[in-house]
Structures are given as C-alpha cells and as structure tokens.
Design a protein around this nucleic acid. Structure first.
Lengths: 381, 381
DNA sequence: TTGAAAGCGATACCAG
DNA sequence: CTGGTATCGCTTTCAA
C-alpha cells in the first residue's frame, strides 16, 4: 500500500487518521492508491495499536423485546447521525430457565475491542460484571435501572409521572376501585407499583389499593388477573380478609418469582388457557375492581385476555391500561390506553450524554424523561 | 503475566489455546497465575496474530422485526450450545426514506475481526457488499433469499407449501373468491404470491385470482385492502374490467414501491385512518372476495383493520390469514390463522450447516423447512 | 516439552 | 513531510 502510493507507511496512517498536517496533494495520492487496491486499514490492528476502538458499544439484553429494539434503533440512528460507529453486542442470553445471564465468552471480546463508550439498554442483571469497563469509559444505561452504580448515567422515563397520568385519567373517568397487576420482575416494576400506591393515596383511594403480583409477561398477567377477579369455590369470602388499607396477594411461586425474564416477550395466551376456568367464581361486581393498571402493555394484554375469558367486557366492565405504548397497543382490535415513555427522547438524551462526555461519569446520575398519556379504547367512558 | 507464572510467553499462549503438548504442572501454574492477575488473553491481539477471530458473525437486518429477533435468539442459543462464540452485528440501518442500507462504517470492522463463519438473517439488500467475505468463509442466509449468490447456503421455510396449506384450508372451508394482499417488498413476497396463484390454479379457481399489491407492513396492507374491497364513486364498474384470468391491480406509487422496508414493523394503524373512508363504496357481497390471504401476519393485521373499518366482520364476511405465526397472531383478540415457518428448525439447520462446514460452500444451495398450518379464529367456519 | 525470535497490521514518536 | 524503530498482545515456527 505504502509502495503503491509511493509514500511512507506513516503518511498512510496519518491520512486515514485525518491528520491535518498532511498536504492535500499527498492525501489524494494515498486515497487514490487505496481506492485502486481496495485498501482500508485493518481495524483490529489499528485498535490494538491505538488502544481505542473508536466506536460505541451497545449492549442489549433481549432483542425479542420490541421496546429495547425500538430504543436500540433510535440510538443507532442518532449515533450514526453524529458520525459515530456503533457496534451492537448482545452479550446477554436467556438460559433454559428463562433467566437472563451474561455470556462470559462474548463480554471479554467487547472489552478487548476498546469501545470509546458504552450504552446498556434495559436493566441488566449483575451489571457489576461490566464494572471494570464502566470505570474506564463513559457509560449510560438507557431505559433501565442501575441502582447505586458509580460512574453510570441512567436515562429513563419517569415512571411516577407515567403512573400518575394513568391513575388520574382513570379517576377522572369515575373509577375508584383501581387495582394493579405487576410489581414483580425487577427493573421498573417496583417504581410503577410504588407510584400506583402513591397516586391512589393522593386521590384518597388508599382503601382500594389492591396489587396482584405479576411480571412483565402476558402469561403471568393472565394468572394474576384471574386471581384478582375470582374466588375459588373452596375459598369463600377469602377476599374480605384483606388487612389494613392495602391488600397485596402473592402469586403462587413460579419461575417468575426467581427474578427472571425482564420484559420477555411471550404472547401466546393459548398455552395457558385453563380447562379449570369454569371452577372459578367471579367476585361480585360491587366488590371487584372496575379498572386494572398493568405494569406494561404485554401484561395489559394478559389482563384483557383474562378479563374476557371470564366473561367480562373491556372497557364496559373493567377498564385496562398498559405502559410503553408498544405497537401492540395501537392495533384497532386492542386499542389500549397506555403511556408513551418517549423512547426517541431517551435515545436522544443517551447519545447526547455520551457525546458530551469525555472520560467516565462521576458518581451516579439519572436523567428522567417526561412520559405522555395515550388514551385509547380500553378506558373508554 | 508470563513473569507471574514464571514461564515464557509462548507457554501462556499454548495453555490458553488448549495445546495438548503442555504438561499439567505447567498448565496449572499458568492458569493459577492468570486467576491471580485476572488475566485473560486479549482477544484482538489473538485474532490479529492468528488471523482467525474464532467466532460466528451474525448479521441481522432489522432488530425491530420480531421474526428476525426470534431466529436470532434461536441461532444464538444453538451456537452457544455448540460452544461457539457469537457476535451479533447490525451492519444494516434504515435511512430516513425507510430504505435498508449497509452501514459501511461497521462492515469493515466485521471483516477485520475475521469471523470464522457468517450468518445473515433475512434477505439483505445488495448482499454483494459482503461477497468478498462470503467467498472466504462459510455463510448461510437464514430465513431470507440470496438468489444466484455463490458460496452461500440458504435455509428458509417452503413458502409454496405454506401458502398451499393456507389456500387448501380456505377452500375446504368453502371459500372460492380468495384474494391475496402482498407481492411487494422483496424477499419471500414474490414466492408467496406465485404460490398463491399456483394454489388457486390447482383448485381450478384461476378466475378468482385477485392480487392487491402491498408490502409486509400493516399500513400498506390497510391501503391495499381498502382498494380491494371498495370502489371509489368516480370509478363505477372499474372492477369489472379485469382481463384474463388474473386481476392484478397496482398500488398507487408510494414509498413502498421503492423496494423499501422489508418486514419493517410499524403497527400504528391510527396514523392512517383516513377521513375519506365514507366516500368509499363497498363492492357487492357477491363479487368481492370472501377470504384474503395476507403475505404475513403484520399485513394480515392491516387487512383485519381495514375490513372492520369498512363495516365488515372477520371471519363472518371475510376470512383472513397471515404468515409467520408471530406472537401477535396468538392473541385472543386477534386470533389469526397463519403459517408457522418453524423458526426453531431454521435456526437449528442453520447452525448445523455452519458447524459441519469447513471452508466456504460450493455453489448455491437451499434447504427448505416444511412449515405448519395454525388454524385460529380468523378463518372460523 | 520449552523458550527465543519473528511476525500480524497498524500507531506513535523521533530525528532528519 | 520522511523513514526508521519501538510497541500493542498474542501466535507460530523452530531450534534447543
């Protein structure tokens, strides 16, 4: 290559590194020769020698989750716009039990490639495995949590505001017995559950707080909703036993209880339709909730499914809300009232932070994006 | 590191490469020292020196598409099970116009990393950019097409069988005027359209062949269905003018016509609900199709939406089928009859081929997976 | 078996 | 601007 251009190795290197000290003549000489030979500098060698991969590493936990995919594409687009090279790595995998784990064969690769900064999408289990990396380069967690983690910036939507919008909306529509399906599965679930309780108290509806544990999946939400709305024959009056101003019932121990499956997408409700459904007795209309706030859209789908399988109608008998404003909720047949977490804004802020930063972040910071209520048919008057 | 263990550099290298020639004593010596120092060989340097990255590169076109995500996860799981390191790279991006293009900043990186084999998920535009790579290492395209491309193995479901299953099923249910929405957008669309025509002919229903052009998106399918089922006031009798045994009407030139958006997921039908819907007149019941075969599930969703917006019912007035058996179709509220392309099988075959191969493939081969019909409510009797 | 030396394909620094 | 040399962190060949 150096020979073809009739120049020195160093000059070639300088040209490809946009060194301002090379003359236009020489530059063209080198570039032309490169064109002729189809040469482009070996990225590995460069990265090895320079100690900087010159790219943004993006770690995404679960590509099957449309929310993460959406944020990912947003970030990639922004980064591209900023002239940054982006390498996506799914160093995470889901094992047989549905748990999410690091692939420790892939992680070292990412480290050795020397990303100049790091984006983690979603809450990752045991983020501390990437800790050494985060201490060296600017890292931001987009749409996830990273409690107490130093040197990390978190950009996410404000779940408290989002849930407030939902509850306010339902109360405005006249609902008082508003229940929550969610709370399990880590990540935003806890925030949303707390926000639900807070909003209910704010509206002086503390006595109607009712939480049925479910994670982000449609299946668990179906089960939770069934528990919420029925009373098994052998359990007469069981619902009346709630103590204090909050009735929290725990799910039977399932795989979901083991901190599994953050936002896993698994939508086949067919699989869980129980033949035992006739054995279940509905709670009386005057006692059961008239509205259910689901932790996310996928769970809301489960809620709707369960409600209808129990012979009730949405929204006439029970209003349902989701969270995330996934493509799902916009479908006519679903038409789900939900919260738009403004993922574009999250992507945008994430990239902005990354580009502004040089060197790792100091301390732990959070940037909260204001979400937006999207009213649809599932809460129609 | 070599110092810590009190051995030479080469010995360390040999240990980490599982060279059988090192003594157990020395091996333990090195491994212990590595443990103490938290050392692991630099992957880049190794790859640079050895000229082999020792990993499978996976290129995925569009992470927003749940089908690709599903196949990707399947492949990753299989590869992991086989002890292979997998690096996912989305060297593709979607530009402002919705077109899918290669990110030529990322591609060289993948090349320089020396993947030992390559998986391309979905049909990639201008696959020839990766050609030099494919000629060097075994490459298989999973669930996509790669016409005439040498040195490439293709694993995909058999669209002809899939569509045959669909049409057979509809005919069995008594349908005769069966239309098709699809044909545009590249990839499998053409196969499915041809298969539709073939199946119709086989059933002696050639005179009822009716194809309304749409790509894989919900939006285009809504538009196509509207065209299919209505006759605008200014176009009286226009439908009767079809010549020959096949009536193919072209979509008005839209962005979709430019070969854009293969399988893009964009499900917000809200955006396209036209105020002009009242101006449209339905084709008479005895003339319009009683069943619509959509090119995929996303499009089927559009078909359902359009049908219902026009005041017709699914399946009573018009039966609808999809393709792909995405999570969507399993939802109670949707309950779409569709074809399961058996993505697990595709993932499995893909990995098997990859592992069996050493060196690039000779010629161009295809492995067809037999799909499966999934009957649901959208074609209920 | 082991260890020393020569690359892999660049960058970085230095004197010219 | 040049050209030579050291370096990045490892593999590989080859003598000992």
């Amino acid at each position: 290559m150096a020979a073809e251009a009739g120049v020195s190795k160093s000059l070639v290197s300088m040209v490809f590194n946009d060194d301002p000290r090379v003359s236009d003549v020489r530059r063209k000489l080198v570039l032309d020769a490169a064109q002729r030979l189809g040469f482009s500098p070996n990225w590995m060698a460069r990265s090895l020698a320079a100690g900087d991969g010159d790219f943004v590493g993006v770690m995404v936990p679960d590509l099957a989750n449309p929310i993460f995919a959406e944020i990912l594409e947003g970030i990639r687009a922004e980064l591209r716009g900023a002239g940054q090279r982006t390498l996506v790595s799914s160093a995470l995998f889901t094992d047989a039990g549905g748990n999410r784990e690091f692939d420790d064969r892939v992680l070292p690769v990412l480290r050795d490639m020397h990303p100049s900064s790091l984006v983690v999408i979603g809450s990752v289990p045991s983020l501390d495995i990437v800790q050494p990396l985060m201490e060296r380069i600017p890292t931001v967690v987009a749409s996830g949590t990273a409690d107490d983690l130093e040197h990390v910036y978190v950009v996410r939507n404000d779940d408290v505001i989002g849930i407030d919008l939902i509850v306010d909306h339902l109360v405005e529509r006249g609902h008082r017995r508003i229940a929550h399906v969610g709370g399990a599965g880590g990540g935003a679930a806890v925030n949303r559950r707390d926000a639900y309780e807070g909003a209910m108290r704010r509206h002086r509806l503390a006595e109607h707080i009712e939480i049925e544990l479910s994670d982000y999946t449609t299946e668990r939400a179906i089960e939770a909703t069934r528990r919420l709305l029925t009373r098994s024959p052998g359990d007469p009056g069981g619902r009346a036993g709630a103590v204090g101003d909050a009735a929290v019932r725990n799910a039977a121990p399932t795989a979901a209880g083991t901190g599994a499956a953050i936002g896993t997408q698994a939508l086949h409700p067919d699989d869980v339709r129980p033949s035992a459904i006739e054995n279940l007795t509905l709670r009386p209309a005057g006692e059961r909730p008239t509205a259910i706030v689901a932790v996310n859209d996928l769970a809301a789908l489960g809620v709707i499914t369960a409600v209808e399988q129990l012979g009730l109608r949405v929204p006439e008998d029970i209003a349902v809300t989701g969270y995330d404003d996934t493509a799902l909720s916009g479908i006519d047949r679903i038409s789900l009232t939900t919260v738009d977490p403004r993922n574009e804004e999250i992507s945008h802020e994430t990239v902005r932070l990354l580009l502004d930063a040089d060197g790792p972040f100091e301390g732990h910071r959070e940037r909260l994006v204001i979400p937006r209520l999207v009213v649809r048919g599932s809460t129609a008057a």
